[in-house]
Amino acid sequence: MQKSLHIDPGKCTGCLQCEMACSLENEGVFNPSKSRIKVFTFHEEGRFVPYTCTQCDEAWCMHACPVDAIVINAVTGSKDVKADLCVGCKVCTIACPFGTVNYNADSGKVVKCDLCGGDPKCVSSCPTDAITYVDANATGLDKMRAWAAKTDNSVSADA
């Protein structure tokens, strides 16, 4: 059974624990600017929206990579950046229509959510269950995929 992140912005208080946990797990430092999940703030409406990669089927990042450095994780279904192969060309950062692959100038490589290998720290650190890791069929994943499909201008060769 494939699991995926389920984000419920209505429950988010903007505490940024997810960003801290992500940064610590993946970069070894408490630095929200290095987090792969970002909480966006809508001041006018007093709303917070956590946002990260949906591990979309289209995998724009993976197909755009010229050196085969983004691969599907057979266990979690996430699209993972192999840092030893990434040359830092950034083509995936412009190819991803969700804006969830980012360049890290310190390492000279790109970073994206890899679901922490199946134990996402943003989930375990969230005090309000705004971010949960659940059966993919039960989430809004299908909605996001529907949106992704809208962006898809090519014949789905995998169909």
Partner: peptide
């Protein structure tokens, strides 16, 4: 600009 630049494509293409 290096963060979330891909949404520019997303907004244009959708």
């Amino acid at each position: 600009l290096t963060q979330h630049v891909g949404v520019l494509r997303g907004l244009i293409q959708s």
